[in-house]
Computed example of a mutant assay.
Amino acid sequence: MIESTLDRARAGDGEAFRELTEPYRRELQVHCYRILGSVQDAEDTVQETLLAAWRGLGGFRERASVRAWLYRIATNRCLNALRDTGRRPRPAQPARRPLDVPEPTRRSEPAWFEPYPDALLEDLPDTAPGPEARYETREALALSFVAGLQHLPPRQRAVLVLRDVLGFPAAEVADLLDSSGVSVNSALQRARTALGGERPARDRERAPLPRSPRERELVGRFVDALENSDVDRLVALLTEDAWLTMPPEPLAYQGPTAIAGFYQALPWWGGQALRLLPTRANGQPAFGSYLLDPHSPIAHAYGLVVLTLEGDRISSVTRFGDNGLFPLFGLPRTLRDL
């Protein structure tokens, strides 16, 4: 009889274990990212998941698939990580001089999360969600969806991702979380309500296709307006209800007038001192932004900007001030010889 990959892995064959688990590695990272909101935390959790799976392989009784078993371990590791970070504050960001900016449209509860580089999605297996999934893959990676998840309690977050994103049946989710079907359904309904309704918003279906000529044209106009400090052209690109947010800062600006007022209050505005370098995050166009050094031909990292598009307009501008994100996106810390 030919020995199976699982049998060889149980016997201590590391190559067989990698053969067994590697097909799920990237999707597990994306799963952990949705729950944790951090690329690095997600990667650390996947490493812990694979180590726990290797150590616990002898106890795997094949009542579920290897994939479901790995999701069980990964989800519970995520919940443990969220409990730990709930007890221990995140390291403070480097202090920055407060900006003299206009009063925001809204001050919201801060939500800490990071964008996810599209480059890491290139080797993601094209696995269709289960029949009970309610979100398409693109919707379930959208920055707005990930941001919304971070406001949910950890268990609701996990249940919603397992049920509505991955399409696991309720009974299987209950087994994954060592819970009851009633508890899972209750958590799911509360999570759906908190995210704003029974069905996900479909506005992004009206957005230009990724990397299409329509998207490139709209994004190019945004770059041109910002790099030239042209407030009229910037305003013309925004939807009437567009938002500018800067997580984890609690400041949010809505509408072209408020957003334009924010940009015009920045010290560099009007000096054509900004440069934008394209990348992609969460399936959306994004940029590393750089401020020119007034004393040398160098521009320094000045945060990552992610755009949400709707039709031929921009419905959201999300700015992340952590320059430590740049290496994840293959972006340099400085631009030279400008």
Rank of each mutant, 00 (worst) to 15 (best):
S4C: 12
T21N: 08
P23W: 11
Q29D: 09
A42E: 10
T45R: 11
T45N: 13
A64T: 09
L70S: 04
T75K: 01
T85P: 07
T85L: 14
R88E: 12
P89L: 12
A95C: 05
A95P: 11
D100R: 08
P102I: 07
W112T: 04
W112Q: 15
P117S: 14
P117C: 13
D123R: 05
P131M: 05
E136T: 14
A140D: 02
H151V: 15
V159K: 01
V161T: 00
R163F: 02
L166R: 13
E172F: 15
A174I: 09
L176P: 11
G181Y: 00
V184F: 10
A191T: 01
L195K: 00
L195N: 00
G196N: 10
R199I: 03
E205Y: 14
L209G: 10
E215H: 02
S229N: 14
V235Y: 00
L238C: 08
E240Y: 15
E240L: 10
W243Q: 15
L251M: 06
Y253E: 03
Q254I: 05
F262Q: 07
Y263L: 09
W268K: 05
W269L: 04
G271W: 02
A273R: 15
T279K: 00
R280V: 13
A299N: 10
A301I: 08
L307S: 06
E310N: 10
G311Q: 03
R319P: 05
R319D: 03
F326Q: 14
D337L: 15
